[in-house]
Design a protein around this nucleic acid. Structure first.
Lengths: 151, 151
DNA sequence: GTGAAAGGGGACCCATTCGGTCCGGATTGC
DNA sequence: GCAATCCGGACCGAATGGGTCCCCTTTCAC
């Protein structure tokens, strides 16, 4: 169905909460604030930390801290951090003779432009455009700018 | 991993073969030509037929026939035919209070611009750009035109 | 008119992956 | 030294996707 994993969704929520509160937040605190199960939040934060999107502070009084404002954080970075590289098919860019029916397959790595197009579209969207501002009540926020195309 | 189903890949291959050969092709014939298992090809063709991308001719001497040239067939149509509507998350456009943590979820249907962007990027790519022309040997075909962005 | 060839529409099963949980270890502040 | 917190992995159940098979209907050839 061409969907991203649920973790990407969670990541956006957690990042949004992280920016809304500001400062250092603990995993249990973020779990309580977002309504997501605590172990899941911890897992999401771990992944985001490995990707360098947040910083994990160990020890007592530790927690997680945003490293970059969400307005400068491309959605594609979050997706890559959670779901791995964006490649629509098994025939990835640098893929070699992995396809079993290589000689008969007429496609043969032609998915690259598609992957590039998706990446571009996703890179143009910032996380801050998805995560609604601190406002808990959705106050008919006008779209900050028409994103790309409107189909 | 943000990938489309394997069926979409198969569909592009089958459609490409269908246009390369021209005329009416049987499912077993297409299976032999593409190297894909026959039941799978039949399933793909059935779905494409339901979506109105190909026409199924019943009876002896039957087969499948392309209804539109691949140059005018958007990739998004194939994806929709095989994988269903393009919606990256469960919070689809018209989704109502399906989210369990609706009051705490700060995202709340904000994925719409993302979906629109993906749809737009996919609609701009024609199937003929992915399916290499009749050439069975890949002769370093230069990209017909830079598709969208290059990341 | 009869039989064979082909599509149409299901049901069905297996493998893979995803979503989620848990545990022990390492690190830091009080 | 103790407690709080992150870090890294292993682990398991469930859902989904990928693939096969069956029987029915339709149409052409003989």
């Amino acid at each position: 169905m061409l969907r991203v994993s649920k973790f990407t969704d969670y990541a956006v929520v957690v990042l949004s909460r992280l920016e809304a509160e500001g400062g250092v937040q603990t995993a249990p605190g973020l779990a309580a604030g977002t309504g997501i199960a605590e172990p899941t939040v911890a897992k999401v934060l771990k992944m985001l930390s490995q990707a360098g999107l947040v910083e994990g502070l160990r020890g007592a009084r530790g927690g997680y801290r945003l490293l970059r404002p969400l307005a400068s954080l491309g959605l594609s970075e979050v997706i890559v951090a959670m779901d791995g590289p964006i490649a629509l098919t098994a025939c990835v860019d640098g893929g070699f003779g992995l396809c079993e029916a290589e000689h008969t397959c007429p496609v043969r790595g032609r998915w690259d432009p598609v992957n590039a197009a998706i990446r571009g579209a996703l890179s143009a969207i910032m996380v801050s455009e998805i995560a609604s501002p601190p406002a808990p009540r959705r106050a008919a926020a006008p779209a900050p700018q028409p994103v790309l195309v409107a189909e």
